[in-house]
Write a protein that binds this DNA or RNA. Structure first.
Lengths: 112, 112
DNA sequence: GTGACGTGCAACCGATCGTTGCAGAAAGAG
DNA sequence: CTCTTTCTGCAACGATCGGTTGCACGTCAC
């Protein structure tokens, strides 16, 4: 039985650049495409596209301020994404544990 | 401070199809490109490419058996991937908690 | 008003995920 | 042994994605 995963949300946090962007937005509180690109190895336009993706899945929200577009993390949505990470991890972990138990059982029965 | 993440390993489990493949391999113990594609909405060739990716990052191993190529999950490597999921989740979780605490502190100081 | 700054849009390139088509090796039926 | 089936790999192709450059447009500051 597999875990229910929102593929859009998952793939949004699947990109390394987007993960770093979320990190930066969390530490700085907010940021624009330009300020983020200063701390990233990609151009402003690439950052803008990533911000559009994050906005589409609700991980960030934008508030226009003059000529700037200031982005901020949606904490509830990020919490949901983190929960999905935990779910998938827990599901695989449980399977690995089960396999380990079975392997140990076989080991024991062979030794006998 | 961000978490150390193996981007290759992460992007290997970032693909929804590859996650389902790992699920199938874990439940069935082993499988070939053909048997996996029976349970997936993609063709055998697509599955074969995904298996190549998973093999490259060490998440599966192949054992040729006659005309078949039987794949099996490397449990240690999958455990490492799960650990990375947990790490990133925990890091974000900690940040969200900190933000929540700060927000509550502000709330209190304003009420006073 | 002019210049500088922040943004959006369009075109383009390379990698990735998916497809179809075909050729080759191994197992089974006659 | 031959023929057919089955599992596989390789090649070409299209769509999408992450990245780039170049340019045009609003907005703030002097």
């Amino acid at each position: 039985m597999s875990v229910a995963v929102d593929d859009d949300l998952w793939s949004a946090i699947g990109d390394p650049t987007r993960r770093r962007m979320l990190d930066l937005l969390l530490t700085d509180g907010a940021g624009t495409a330009t300020t983020l690109s200063d701390s990233l190895p990609v151009t402003r336009q690439a950052v803008a596209k990533h911000l559009a993706v994050l906005d589409r899945v609700g991980l960030v929200h934008v508030s226009p301020a003059g000529r700037e577009r200031r982005y901020r993390v949606d904490e509830a949505q990020l919490a949901r994404a983190v929960a999905q990470l935990a779910d998938v991890g827990a599901a695989w972990d449980a399977r690995l544990q089960r396999i380990k138990r079975i392997a140990e059982a076989i080991e024991r029965s062979q030794k006998k």
